[in-house]
Structures are given as structure tokens and as C-alpha cells.
């Protein structure tokens, strides 16, 4: 069953992005569908809404765009 740590929610995404910069793929790995119980489409949609709300900073690391937040 999904635990509070694997649930896809704004606070969980915020915690990850404060800890370290992450690509979209890094974030998707943290919220795998088999753990959250969401479909792929739901995961993409929810994560997009959360990122729009958080409006994280962006920077390129090794030519890949990473999101991050400061506390």
C-alpha cells in the first residue's frame, strides 16, 4: 500500500527538491506507478500541476535541466 513517503503530493515533491536538484526523470522515479497506484497519465498530470505550483528554480547540470528549491 502507498505510504505517506511514496504518495505523490506537493509536500513530497518539495522535500525532494529541497534536498537536491532533480530532473523530471529523477522525480518520476521517486513516484513510480507501482508504488503510488496512479496511472502513468495521472502521474504526469499531477506532477505537472505540482511543479507549476511550486515553480522551482531551474539549472542545467551535465546538460540536463534540473529543478530545485531552497528553503
Amino acid at each position: 500500500t502507498p505510504s505517506s513517503q511514496t504518495a505523490l503530493c506537493l509536500d513530497a515533491v518539495r522535500r525532494y527538491l529541497i534536498r537536491k536538484p532533480m530532473t523530471t526523470k529523477d522525480l518520476l522515479k521517486k513516484f513510480q506507478t507501482k508504488r503510488t497506484g496512479l496511472s502513468s497519465e495521472q502521474t504526469v498530470n499531477v506532477l505537472a500541476q505540482i511543479l507549476k505550483r511550486l515553480n522551482p528554480e531551474r539549472k542545467n547540470i551535465s546538460d540536463k535541466m534540473h529543478f530545485y528549491l531552497t528553503e
Partner: peptide, 20 residues
């Protein structure tokens, strides 16, 4: 699979492109 992850990442980036 990694290809599904790639597809999801691409879809997510496409969603965010309008915004970014």
C-alpha cells in the same frame, strides 16, 4: 521499463513547456 520512464518524462516536459 526505462522506455516508459522516458515517455513519461517527455510527456511531463511537454506539459511544463507551456509554463516554462
Amino acid at each position: 521499463s526505462s522506455s516508459e520512464a522516458d515517455e513519461m518524462a517527455a510527456a511531463l516536459e511537454a506539459e511544463l513547456n507551456d509554463f516554462m
